[in-house]
Design a binder for these strands. Structure first.
Length: 599
RNA sequence: GCCUCUGUAGUUCAAUGGAUAGAACUACGGUUUCCUAAACCGUCAAUCCGGGUUCGAUUCCCGGCGGAGGUACCA
């Protein structure tokens, strides 16, 4: 980082001295040199040709000479290939850089201060009528990782969850439980609360379909049958009762939601995610209604003859959008407006990020415009962190067809597979207690799952193959975790013989290319964290960690560390290992992935 | 129909407009006097098609073709 800054400023000065023109920093393209060429950093000189009015080679040569004579303690040498100026950095500069990384426990992170902007991140947002599935897992992992990344970039972060705890879908579960449940509770059945409720949601659907086909058999059209089936009518009645605060219905609703929340808590805890503030739609939907009526008064919205309220977005190139139904009840959009209002009351939000699937791109485009019209400062540039769907090898997940991957099942399976894998490796964990071994299996199993999902660009749809997901080789979480554990092992062994990495590293160590490359890769971490924050994209951190690990593994394979005879060299390599370990821990930490001391 | 996103080795994923498009899995073949072999090394193999922008395009723009999503008084 420091090295690059120094070079860039010298280049800008050099262009001025050589060609008499001021250039901006973004014109200076300094990148890491490709492996097949000599040098560490490469300047692309094409952008300067118009200024120098000379050939690429000549321009590169001149800039190179300027750098070498002006900052000789940084630029040891240079070479020119076409329009590329390859710079070789002096060893002492690299060692200084490693020292600065070594001294900073939160290398690459920008500290959060009182003045930092406040970013609120909404993620998870479950319905309370069924347990979490693989799609929610992606949402939760992305939301958590993004929160960590934003914080690492110097933002105050508030993680929030909006729970959709009201509506017809909840009533369906409640109704089925009353009819077919025989008073079953999580305690009496031993079934996790969210799964229990989910079972009755499925039961409702089953009986509902039966009624529909009966009615169709009696000669009713399918469309009509769907509306006339006794079950759906009862569910609607129940919803009305709920809205009218019927004490019995409300009591049942509260009881069943508590079961679900208890179940969700277990899943959230297993995934390692948490929230600073939870909102419930049962508490926000009325606020939204109010806000919409307020907008109506101000003339922002209009009312149709049937009483429904709409926003006219044709000016913005969109169509008209419904905000309140003709019967006065609120829709999805209304609730989001209400939630926004409450959040704004509760926090001085500078930026709002919604982690929601890409099927709702249009919804958020509209929401942004509406919030802006209603006077929310952050409305216009709210961020919809839109992620793709998770597909299975045999197609999309459909809850009705039973092709969903349940989150709890998946987590349990990953952990038990991790356990099996480590048991296959004899001589490894034999001295550990059962408890310690289980803890490692948990860390590794979850690491595999999290990494598998987070390494993929969030915007893209991704394919999840349950059989292949638990691969512990290649670009996977366990591979990275394993490298970390090995590094920790080396440091433990070194400590046993009294070798400790000092704060300050000796400057007179001779470095080879692989060692320099490793320092360079370490320093890239700061750039990657910044990029992840700018692009709202945790996946680049995952891929960075993997590249770093691969590079370290080669280094580790080629050079000895504990058996190195040159004392300076030994300390240097130990420091290098320690800092690779540190950066892995920081990087994986941003993804919400733990790293084990042993495995 | 209209709108948005997306097309990279057999498969799953990479590549701020930069040099010969990288990995991993699979297959085949190597490497343990040595700190964790859950490792390392090698071989095979790809930018959907056609234009444009420029020193230079997987990337940006336009047009096809393929995939996904949206376009509801569902959430």
């Amino acid at each position: 980082m420091e090295i690059e800054k120094k070079i860039i400023s010298t280049i800008i000065k050099g262009i001025k001295d050589l060609y008499g023109q001021e250039v901006t920093e973004n014109l200076v393209q300094l990148q890491t040199t490709k492996k097949e060429f000599e040098g560490h950093l490469t300047l692309v000189v094409f952008p300067f040709l118009k200024i120098s009015k000379k050939k690429p080679e000549e321009t590169a040569q001149e800039i190179g000479s300027y750098l070498k004579s002006n900052i000789p303690n940084v630029i040891a040498d240079f070479n020119v290939i076409k329009g590329f100026l390859n710079l070789t950095i002096a060893s002492s500069s690299w060692i200084e850089l490693l020292t600065s990384i070594n001294q900073n426990d939160k290398f690459g992170f920008i500290p959060v201060t009182e003045q930092s902007p406040l970013v609120m991140i909404e993620y998870s947002s479950p319905n309370t009528n069924k347990p979490l599935h693989l799609g929610h897992v992606r949402n939760n992992l992305l939301g958590w990782a993004l929160a960590q990344v934003m914080e690492a970039n110097g933002n105050k972060v508030v993680k929030t969850n909006i729970v959709n705890d009201r509506g017809i879908h909840i009533c369906k579960s409640m109704l089925a439980w009353l009819k077919y449940g025989n008073g079953a509770t999580p305690e009496s059945t031993g079934i996790k609360g969210d799964h229990l409720i989910g079972d009755y949601y499925v039961a409702f659907d089953k009986h509902y379909r039966e009624q529909i086909s009966e009615l169709v058999a009696q000669g009713m059209s399918e469309e009509e049958a769907k509306n006339e089936a006794p079950l759906i009518k009862e569910a609607r009645e129940m919803l009305v009762k709920w809205e009218n605060n019927d004490p019995e219905i409300r009591a049942l609703w509260r009881k069943m939601n508590e079961w679900v929340y208890a179940g969700f808590d277990v899943t959230y805890k297993a995934l390692g995610v948490s929230f600073d503030k939870i909102y419930y739609e049962s508490e926000t939907y009325l606020e939204g209604k109010e806000k919409v009526l307020e907008g109506l008064e101000k003339g922002l919205f209009f009312r149709k003859e049937d009483g429904s309220v709409w926003a006219d977005l044709t000016q913005e190139g969109l169509d008209e959008k419904l905000l309140l139904r003709s019967d006065g009840t609120s829709v999805y959009m209304t609730q989001d407006i209400g939630t926004a209002k409450l959040r704004f009351q509760d926090y001085p939000i500078n930026k709002m990020i919604y982690v929601v699937g890409n099927e709702q791109n249009y919804h958020f485009q509209v929401l942004s415009i509406l919030l802006d019209k209603l006077g929310f400062d952050w409305g216009k540039d709210l961020v919809h962190f839109s992620y793709g769907m998770v597909e299975l090898p045999n197609g999309k997940m459909k809850s009705r067809e039973g092709t969903v991957v349940d989150a709890d099942d998946l987590i349990a399976e990953m952990i038990s597979n991790a356990k099996k894998m480590s048991e296959d490796k004899i001589n490894k964990l034999t001295d550990l207690t059962e408890e310690e071994a289980n803890e490692i299996a948990r860390i590794v199993g979850l690491g595999a799952l999290k990494y598998f999902i987070l390494k993929v660009d969030a915007r893209k749809n991704m394919l999840f193959n349950p059989d292949e997901s638990i691969d512990f080789n290649g670009n996977t979480g366990p591979f990275i975790q394993y490298t970390y554990a090995r590094i920790r092992s080396i440091l433990r062994k070194a400590a046993e013989v009294g070798l400790v990495v000092p704060q300050e590293l000796p400057l007179d160590t001779e470095l080879n290319e692989k060692e320099i490359n490793l320092i360079q890769s370490l320093s890239d971490f700061a750039l990657v964290v910044k990029q992840a924050g700018n692009d709202y994209n945790p996946s680049c951190i995952a891929n960075y960690c993997y590249d770093l690990v691969k590079e370290y593994n080669q280094f580790y394979h080629d050079f000895s560390i504990l058996h190195e005879e040159d004392k300076n060299k030994q300390i240097f390599r130990l420091a290098l290992s320690a800092n690779v370990g540190k950066v892995i821990r920081l990087g994986m930490g941003l993804l919400g992935i733990e790293v084990p001391e042993r495995m």
